[in-house]
């Protein structure tokens, strides 16, 4: 399974990414949500390993942290890492969804210094949050805005050609989408997605994963237990030869 250029199913995305998250010591419930976010990424035609590997690497190397705090601001709220580390998108994504489900989007929600913005977007998408705008400027000074318009459509407006899944390290702003703020990026490139069409394509063709996949698989492999002669003989309760 640890080959390049594979096509995998959405169920395999769920299986492998849940355990990859667990492999970098994210709690299992957070890892499950991380995997659901990756399904959303995959069923919209992206390689989920592309952006998620950065989040997994950061957590594994402790460059990022799952610690998160919320503070009220004048026009909404802010989620941030209380430690001197990058905020892991694996945790930021679930906290954003929780916050929006509980508070709605009366004010803006800012998420400070998060490593993989697309993971936050995908968590919102996976949880059918719509009428929402997510925008950021990453450390390469590329500007992105994602409009989760409704249950059927979403769009990306980007200031550069750099794929959104490669956009890392940014302060994210999440707010309600309205006509006035829909396309503020000057000369931005627009890409639109019909969720049902993209999903159908993925179901018929599978999810192509590229050169980052073996590293995802490596994190997944951490949940596997080494086999011994004893466990091989008895761990599944059956013998090694069956005749009847």
């Amino acid at each position: 399974m640890s080959k390049n250029g594979l096509t995998i199913s959405l169920n395999e995305v769920l299986f492998y990414f849940t355990r990859a998250g667990f492999g970098v010591k994210a709690p299992i419930g957070v890892s499950e949500d991380f995997a659901r976010s990756n399904i959303w990424i995959a069923q919209n035609g992206f390689d989920p390993s592309e952006c998620s590997l950065v989040a997994l690497d950061n957590l594994d190397s402790q460059k990022s942290s799952l610690s998160i705090q919320f503070e009220k601001t004048g026009d909404g709220g802010r989620l941030f890492c209380p430690e001197d580390k990058v905020l892991s998108a694996i945790e930021a994504s679930v906290s954003c969804v929780d916050w929006i489900e509980f508070n709605g989007l009366d004010g803006d929600l800012k998420v400070t210094n998060v490593d993989c913005p697309l993971l936050v977007v995908s968590a919102l998408g996976a949880n059918q949050c719509s009428g929402i705008k997510v925008s950021w400027v990453d450390r390469s000074n590329n500007q992105y805005q994602v409009n989760l318009s409704d249950d059927s459509n979403w769009e990306i407006i980007a200031s550069s050609e750099t794929p959104i899944e490669q956009s890392n390290y940014a302060d994210i702003e999440i707010s309600a989408l309205d006509g006035a703020n829909k396309t503020p990026i000057k000369n931005g490139k627009l890409k639109t997605f019909n969720i049902a069409d993209e999903k159908l394509k993925t179901l018929n063709n599978g999810v192509s994963v590229g050169d980052k996949w073996p590293e995802i698989y490596e994190y997944f492999s951490r949940c596997l237990v080494k086999s011994s002669a004893e466990s091989r003989a008895s761990g599944a309760g059956a013998g090694l030869v069956d005749t009847d």
């Binding site: 994210a26 709690p27 419930g29 949500d33 919320f70 945790e91 679930v94 929780d98």
Partner: peptide, 11 residues
């Protein structure tokens, strides 16, 4: 939501 931020192991 706040509880889960403090105790993500219970999510």
């Amino acid at each position: 939501g706040e509880f889960a931020m403090m105790h993500p192991q219970f999510r």
